[in-house]
Design a protein around this nucleic acid. Structure first.
Length: 591
RNA sequence: GGUCCAGUAGCUCAGUUGGAUAGAGCGGCAGCCUUCUAAGCUGUAGGCCAUUGGUUCGAAUCCAAUCUGGAUCACCA
C-alpha cells in the first residue's frame, strides 16, 4: 500500500537525516485533497516540534532525500504551509496495472488462520421479517464476506427465537380462530400466515382486557386475568413439560414460518453455516452460573435467586437465575457463547444485534470476563442503529412496519419499470430479464441499507421510493455494465503497457484510487463497516464515468493509450464487481 | 433520575486516531446524446458543522457545560 510505503520510507529518511527514533517522530501520511499538486502529503507539524527546525527546511531536506533514495517511486515534491506534497511516479501505477488488471483477487488477503463466528438475522418465529431485519441480514452477511476477503475463516450463524410466551400467543390464536386453515389452504406465505395470528391474539387480548376493566377490574389485574392470556401461560407450561399435542402444533407452525423465511432468505441471498434454536439452548448456562457461585462472582439472595453485582462497573445488579431456578435471557446467552466456542474453536464471536441491546451485551461481556471464561475477550457486539421512519420508530401496533417481502417486491417492480422504459435490453430472453430486474432491484435495496455507517440509525421514507440514480447500487452497476460492453468489443490480447507512458490527470486519479482498494478492504474489516466499501465503490464508479465522458477508450489517440485505458477500465470493473460482491450485490453484464 | 448514542446544505448521508478552501447524492437552476450504454456527464446556487466556553501553531473532530432527539436501566426475550 502506498501510504504505508511512504510512511516507511519517510521513517528511514528521518533516522538517516536526523537520527530520530520512530516512536518520537509520529507523522501523518494522507492522500492529497483536490486542487493541490501532488498525490500524497506528509504533515510536517508534528515533526517540527521534536526537530526544532522550520517546516520549509525540513520539507526541503526530507523531499530531496526521498527523491534521491526512491527515484522509482517519488518524482517530485513541493511544500505548502507545512505540508510536504509528494508526486508518485506514473510507472509505479502502470506496473501495478499491468500486474492486476484482470486479477479477481486484487486487494484481498491470504488466510490468516483466525476463525470468527458472525451471528446475525436472529428472527422470531411469530412475525415476518421487516426492514430492520433486512439491515441486520445485509450487514451480517456482508461483514462475514469482508472478513473472508481479509483472510479469516468464517462461520455464519443464526439463533432462532422459536420458543417462549410470544410464540404461544400465535398458537393460541390459531387454535381459537383458524378453523384448521393453513398457509397452503389460504395460499399465504407461512411467516405472514402465522404473523397474522399473532396480531389476532393481540386484538383479542386487548378486547378481553377492556371487557374486564368495564366489569370493574383495574388495568394490571385485567391484563393478568384475561382468559386468552391465562390459556397462553398454561400452554407455555405444557410446552415446557413436553405435552404432545402442544409440541406437535408448535412444530407445525414453526415449520410454516421457516418455509416462509426460506423464501425470503433465498431471495436476498442470506445463508448460514449453523443455525441454533432457542428451544435447544434455553436451558444452557446454568452450570456456568453454579461455577460463578463457587467463584463468588455471583451471589444468592434469600429467596434463592442468583445475581451479579455490576455496580462498580457503573451498571446495576443483574439477575442471572430466577428464584425457581429457571434461566433468564442472559443465562442462555452465557451458555450459548460457551457452546459456540467449544463447537467451533472460534477466536472471535461477532454478534450483529441492534443498539437497543447495548446494555445487555455489555453485561454479557462483563459476566464472561468476571467468570474468567477463555472466550470472554473474543465477544464483540456489532451494534447497529435502528431503521426509522420520518415519523419515528416503526411500530407494529400502528401498522407502520415496513414489511421485507413487500419492499423487495416493490424494488423489483420499480427496477422492471425503469428498465423497460429505457428500452436497452430488448434482445434479452424472458428469464434473463427477470434475473436483471432482480439484480438491479435487490442491488438498490442492499446498497441503500449498507451505504450508511452501521452504528448510526437511519431514516427510510416510504413515501419516496429508493433511488436508482446517484449514490446508489444501480449507479455502480451501470458503470460496470458500460465497461463490460467496451471490453466485449475489444477482446484482442493486450501487451504490457510501458512504464514510462505519460498519464493524463484523470488516468492517474483513477489509478491512485484503485491503489487504495486494499486499504479500504482492511479498514472495513477492522471497523466492521461495509459502508466504507460502498462509498469507495461509488467514488470509483463516479470517477470512471467522468473519465468515460471526457476520453474515448476504443478510439484513443494512440494504440498504446487504448491498451492502457482498456486495462484501467478492466481493473475498474474487477474492483467494482469484487467490492459489490462483498456487499452481496450482483453485477449485470448489460443493463 | 443514572448510563450510553446522536445533532453537518431543503432532504438523505460522508468527513470525527486534531491538519490545507467542510464533501457527495437527491431536490432547484442552466447546459450536454450524428462518436465506447444519458440508470450518465458538465456547470451553478445552497453551511453560525445545535449553542457557549476552553485546550493549541491549527478544532466539525478533543474537553466542559447547556439545549434538542433517541436507546436503555424487567424474575420479557
Amino acid at each position: 500500500m502506498l501510504s504505508s510505503i511512504i510512511r516507511e520510507k519517510t521513517r528511514e529518511a528521518l533516522i538517516d537525516l536526523y537520527g530520530i527514533e520512530s516512536e518520537k517522530g509520529e507523522f501523518q501520511v494522507n492522500p492529497i485533497k483536490q486542487d493541490f499538486s501532488g498525490d500524497y502529503t506528509i504533515v510536517l507539524f508534528s515533526l517540527i516540534k521534536t526537530l526544532k527546525i522550520s517546516p520549509d527546511k525540513l520539507g526541503n531536506e526530507l523531499g530531496e532525500y526521498l527523491i534521491k533514495e526512491n527515484s522509482d517511486l517519488i518524482t517530485d515534491f513541493s511544500i505548502i504551509k507545512g505540508f510536504l506534497n509528494l508526486t508518485i511516479a506514473s510507472s509505479y501505477f502502470v506496473d501495478l496495472l499491468n500486474k492486476h488488471y484482470q486479477d479477481g483477487c486484487f486487494g484481498k488477503s491470504p488466510l490468516n488462520g483466525k476463525r470468527v463466528m458472525v451471528e446475525y438475522s436472529s428472527p422470531n418465529t411469530n412475525k415476518p421479517l421487516h426492514l430492520g431485519h433486512l439491515r441486520n441480514n445485509f450487514l451480517g452477511w456482508s461483514i462475514a464476506e469482508i472478513l473472508k476477503a481479509n483472510g479469516y475463516d468464517i462461520i455464519k450463524s443464526c439463533i432462532v427465537n422459536d420458543r417462549g410466551i410470544h410464540i404461544c400467543k400465535s398458537m393460541i390464536a390459531w387454535l381459537r380462530y383458524a378453523n384448521g386453515a393453513t398457509p397452503s389452504s389460504t395460499e399465504m406465505k407461512g411467516d405472514h400466515f402465522v404473523g397474522d395470528y399473532y396480531v389476532k391474539f393481540n386484538d383479542a387480548y386487548k378486547q378481553e382486557v377492556e371487557e374486564l376493566i368495564a366489569k370493574g377490574l383495574d388495568k394490571t389485574s385485567a391484563e393478568k386475568e384475561a382468559p386468552i392470556m391465562k390459556e397462553t401461560q398454561q400452554m407455555l407450561l405444557d410446552w415446557e413439560n413436553g405435552k404432545e399435542d402442544v409440541m406437535e402444533l408448535w412444530r407445525k407452525m414453526n415449520q410454516w414460518v421457516y418455509d416462509g423465511f426460506d423464501v425470503t432468505y433465498n431471495r436476498i441471498g442470506s445463508d448460514f453455516d449453523k443455525t441454533y434454536y432457542e428451544s435447544d439452548t434455553y436451558l444452557l448456562g446454568k452450570d456456568t452460573v453454579n461455577l460463578g457461585l463457587e467463584k463468588n462472582v455471583f451471589y444468592k439472595k434469600d429467596d434463592g435467586s442468583v445475581w451479579i453485582d455490576l455496580t462498580d462497573e457503573g451498571l446495576d445488579e443483574k439477575l442471572v437465575l430466577r428464584k425457581d431456578g429457571t434461566s433468564v435471557y442472559i443465562t442462555q446467552d452465557i451458555g450459548l457463547a460457551q457452546k459456540k466456542y467449544e463447537e467451533f474453536k472460534i477466536d472471535q464471536s461477532i454478534y450483529v444485534i441492534g443498539d437497543e441491546q447495548n446494555y445487555h451485551m455489555k453485561v454479557l461481556q462483563l459476566i464472561c470476563k468476571k467468570l474468567g471464561l477463555p472466550y470472554a475477550s473474543g465477544i464483540h457486539h456489532l451494534s447497529y442503529g435502528m431503521v426509522e421512519l420520518p415519523t419515528g420508530k416503526m411500530k407494529s401496533r400502528e401498522g407502520t412496519v415496513v414489511d421485507a417481502d413487500d419492499l423487495i417486491k416493490e424494488m423489483i417492480s420499480i427496477s422492471s419499470q425503469h428498465t423497460q422504459s429505457l428500452g436497452k435490453v430488448n434482445d434479452f430472453e424472458e428469464n434473463d430479464l427477470i434475473a436483471l430486474y432482480d439484480t438491479i432491484g435487490i442491488g438498490a435495496l442492499k446498497f441503500f441499507l449498507l451505504r450508511v455507517d452501521p452504528k448510526k440509525k437511519m431514516i427510510f421514507n416510504p413515501e419516496e421510493s429508493i433511488d436508482f440514480h446517484g449514490f446508489t447500487g444501480p449507479f455502480v452497476q451501470y458503470a460496470y455494465a458500460r465497461i463490460r460492453s467496451i471490453l466485449r468489443k475489444n477482446t484482442t490480447e493486450t501487451a504490457a503497457s510501458p512504464s514510462k507512458i505519460e498519464l493524463l490527470p484523470m488516468e492517474k486519479e483513477l489509478l491512485l484510487l484503485q491503489e487504495q482498494y486494499e486499504t479500504i478492504l482492511i479498514q472495513s474489516a477492522n471497523e466492521l463497516n461495509p459502508s466504507l466499501i460502498a462509498i469507495y465503490l461509488f467514488q470509483l464508479a463516479q470517477l470512471f464515468n467522468s473519465f468515460y465522458a471526457a476520453h474515448s477508450i476504443s478510439n484513443a489517440e494512440t494504440e498504446e493509450k487504448k491498451q492502457l485505458r482498456l486495462k484501467i477500465a478492466s481493473l475498474t470493473s474487477v474492483i467494482l464487481s469484487s467490492g459489490m460482491q462483498l456487499l452481496g450485490i450482483k453485477m449485470p453484464e448489460k443493463m
